[in-house]
Design a protein around this nucleic acid. Structure first.
Lengths: 179, 179
DNA sequence: TACATATATGTCAATTGTGACATAACGAGG
DNA sequence: CCTCGTTATGTCACAATTGACATATATGTA
């Protein structure tokens, strides 16, 4: 069982979801395409870690709603205690920045502004997530504690916002360097 | 030609390096093992983008020092202008945090402290890089501009420090949540 | 009318990346 | 003396991931 499989179990521990929804929601922490998710879900179902019900829809295609089983929950709990791999980031832009002296200031500024607007868009989406979490929570977010069902969502949105703020801060600083 | 290949050219645009050194220096932005680097270097050499000289060493194993060729430089310059893929991060810890409510506060705190010390170690190494860059630069770092050979190193260390500071800030904030 | 996008699931070939094996010499520690 | 870590290069089987293809319906757009 690979990390992505456990990631899917992790999402399913809160809510029953379709493969399509799992694919959408796991993106910020473990980007994966549907072509990777669907075969893994079939494997997880084979092993009895998840089960699904067919849900017929008239307006949209029918779907399979997956949920975590008892033994899936046990597997998930065991995995949490196991050693955790360090995060891995692959950043093509950073590779380009290393040799940015090969282009002129104007071109470098163009690239930087493009990257900055990418981060601005990301931050906007994270802020929308934050508002969604706030709307779904019964308590004020600051009062949530570890066993509250929204705790994970809350602290992860916070993590994402802090990181994108750091990226935006660097972009701002870089702009002053390229003036 | 994949992104990692261009990353190698990018590093070689500043200094001639061995495959082993390239493997070490590309880690922060594009983690790759030597088993991936060496075959790519052979391909790049076949295409004429890089060339190497054998350097015999008595105390350590002999090595191959690679450098960028004219046509390698041209390929690198073309790549810089091309659209840049967004950064990709895979974070197993974040997947665990999503369902952290499955374990008790003490266990969650243990995991968090472990992750925090990982980030502290990373920050220390980045600060060492910063000092190394400062030592190698002729001008004060604040005065470096885009065409200075140390500019890329300087702004990337700054980027790395800002990001790890954001991670540490989140850890600090999380500790207060788990008290 | 035609085309793009979103929902929804699935397969498969090709590419990318990992972990183990192989070799070899040095220095440090038990 | 033996093992471990570092330097240094290389191969190879396997696992993880991507991108294209396939299908179907609804909705919005040119």
């Amino acid at each position: 069982m690979n990390t992505l499989s456990y990631g899917l179990l992790s999402l399913l521990s809160k809510d029953s979801r379709t493969g399509y929804e799992l694919m959408q929601h796991i993106q910020p922490f473990w980007p994966a395409k549907h072509s990777q998710i669907y075969p893994l879900l079939a494997l997880l179902e084979q092993k009895g870690y998840v089960e699904f019900v067919h849900v017929l829809q008239s307006d949209k295609p029918d779907k399979k709603v997956y949920s975590l089983t008892e033994i899936g929950l046990k597997a998930l709990q065991e995995w949490i205690g196991l050693p955790t791999d360090p995060p891995v980031t692959r950043d093509e832009f950073a590779l380009k920045v290393y040799c940015i002296g090969l282009v002129n200031k104007a071109e470098a500024m163009r690239m930087l502004l493009e990257r900055e607007s990418y981060y601005i868009g990301k931050k906007e989406r994270y802020m929308e997530s934050y508002e969604r979490v706030k709307g779904q929570s019964e308590k004020p977010l600051e009062e949530l504690e570890i066993h509250d069902p929204m705790f994970g969502n809350y602290v992860l949105v916070r993590k994402a916002v802090l990181k994108v703020d750091a990226d935006l801060l660097w972009c701002e600083w870089m702009k002053s360097k390229l003036k």
